[in-house]
Design a protein around this nucleic acid. Structure first.
Lengths: 137, 137
DNA sequence: TATTGTTATACTCTATAACTATA
DNA sequence: TATAGTTATAGAGTATAACAATA
């Protein structure tokens, strides 16, 4: 097995570990599980998504999506709608409440956490440039 | 609400999302859940850890640790040992098998993934320097 | 009395398989 | 026949509360 130690990757993993509980704790304040938040996040306002696409994007079985959407719908955060062209399909849309909650949580997630806030503007620009290349965008 | 967009943080979150399923899928190859892997990772070879400390490090309730250790012990990856000084305490130790599996998985995790491998040596050094500062080390 | 670990219970997430209603 | 979503079932992770053994 080749030795391919990479300090940058080690540190990145360390950062991930440090932030392991960050998202779960944040969304728990709104009584959402990480999976439920993921659903909310995937549905853009005014762009309902078929359940099958949700399952694909969540990388989970379709049967899970039924339960996730059940619980979100019970809280009136999303709603199932009939698709016009194919009556087997149900598209999931954000309700007004759902959209508002999604926006509120997204705003909080956009706040850079301690370790990032600690960087200078110059370092952040460097970091951005490197990450853009890493992500190939 | 203040506008505090931070591109570096946005990109970092994008990287996290892209890697969301990476660890779960990797450890699933060894029939471990992420939580079980976390336990294995926390126990250094020859440094058994009390269950209470595991619960603290995992940031979960002590009652969970019972089940996690039950399943790992059933596979002979860890074992419960009596603590000499306090008979209430049980310390969890890696077995030889457990240590070997832990090392194998750790080696695979140390391999930098695609996005990092795509960077030049210079960019990785820059990234390391920035992350070291972010992590305060 | 306080603490460590366990048990009992309940809920969510996850997968597989069988089912329904459409196509 | 094939596909979209559901239901039934089972296992794992999580929390809370009650409990036993020990301190």
């Amino acid at each position: 097995m080749r030795r391919r130690e990479c300090e940058a990757w080690q540190l990145l993993q360390e950062l991930l570990r440090a932030h392991r509980t960050f998202l779960p704790m944040l969304v728990a304040e709104y009584e959402l599980s990480p999976a439920q938040w993921h659903v909310l996040q995937l549905i853009a306002p005014d762009e309902p998504l078929p359940m099958g696409e949700l399952a694909r994007d969540l990388a989970c079985d379709a049967s899970n999506v039924t339960g996730l959407v059940d619980r979100l719908e019970a809280r009136r955060l999303v709603e199932r709608r009939a698709a016009p062209h194919d009556r087997r399909v149900k598209v999931i849309a954000l309700t007004r409440q759902g959209g508002a909650l999604r926006a509120r949580i997204a705003a909080r997630l956009a706040e850079p956490p301690g370790p990032i806030a600690r960087l200078s503007a110059f370092e952040r620009r460097q970091l951005s440039a490197i990450l853009r290349k890493a992500l190939g965008s």
